[in-house]
């Protein structure tokens, strides 16, 4: 019998498990790692081949109509590439993660589950060395069933990322979040609306 048991999250997590982990990691993320939630998160939805941006937006809005709007606020937008973004806003990270979790259920029930590409959680991080605020992202990809980090670096038009910080983030949070460690799956998403 072990004297001390280390907390080990599963290496792969389903959508609700992953969102539960994100909500539960608030203290670690915000108090110990100094990454503060922007109080919003989003689900990225791939459009069908024949859909126009207006139709994509309408389809997402229709799917979300049945969701409880008392706890969260929703926003739907379509980016330049035609992908839909269902954005959740809440008071605390736990609420936001719960909202994203519900969205997963709603999209699955609406037959859009196979077009959900990612859930995106942005945070602000105070870079004390360079004295600046940095935006960092945790992406949950259902395909690999894990969170992957993404830190854009410098001028957004140059599409560069800070890989060292990404590795540090993943190392620091892996006990609390089901991260996907194979870096070949650490895809970026440039020009996000959140």
């Amino acid at each position: 019998m072990c004297f001390f048991a280390f907390k080990r999250p599963p290496s792969h997590a389903t959508w609700p498990q992953a969102m539960g982990s994100m909500g539960g990691a608030t203290e670690r993320l915000e108090k110990q790692l100094d990454t503060v939630t922007t109080r919003e998160a989003a689900v990225l939805v791939r459009p069908t081949e024949e859909q126009s941006p207006t139709q994509t937006r309408a389809e997402i809005e229709r799917a979300l109509m049945g969701m409880d709007r008392t706890q969260f606020r929703f926003d739907v937008t379509v980016d330049d590439t035609g992908y839909g973004w269902a954005i959740v806003k809440g008071a605390v990270l736990g609420d936001v993660a719960a909202g994203i979790s519900q969205m997963g259920d709603v999209f699955t029930a609406s037959g859009m589950g196979d077009r959900v590409m990612a859930a995106v959680f942005p945070f602000m991080w105070r870079d004390s060395v360079h004295q600046r605020e940095r935006k960092i992202y945790w992406l949950y990809q259902p395909r690999v069933r894990g969170f992957t980090p993404f830190v854009p670096d410098g001028d957004p038009t140059r599409e560069e990322r800070d890989h060292e910080l990404e590795i540090r983030m993943e190392t620091a949070i892996r006990r609390d979040l089901p991260t996907f460690r194979d870096t070949s799956e650490w895809y970026p998403i440039w020009g996000m609306p959140i």
Binding site: R46, Y83, L139, E164, T183, W186
Partner: peptide
């Protein structure tokens, strides 16, 4: 992690981190 990042770069692992946007890699 700075040394780890350097090792990954020297190993050629940085190109392993995809530059392609998730939306284009569907």
């Amino acid at each position: 992690m700075a040394l780890a990042s350097a090792l990954e770069k020297l190993q050629g692992a940085i190109p392993k981190v995809p530059h392609q946007d998730l939306r284009k890699a569907e």
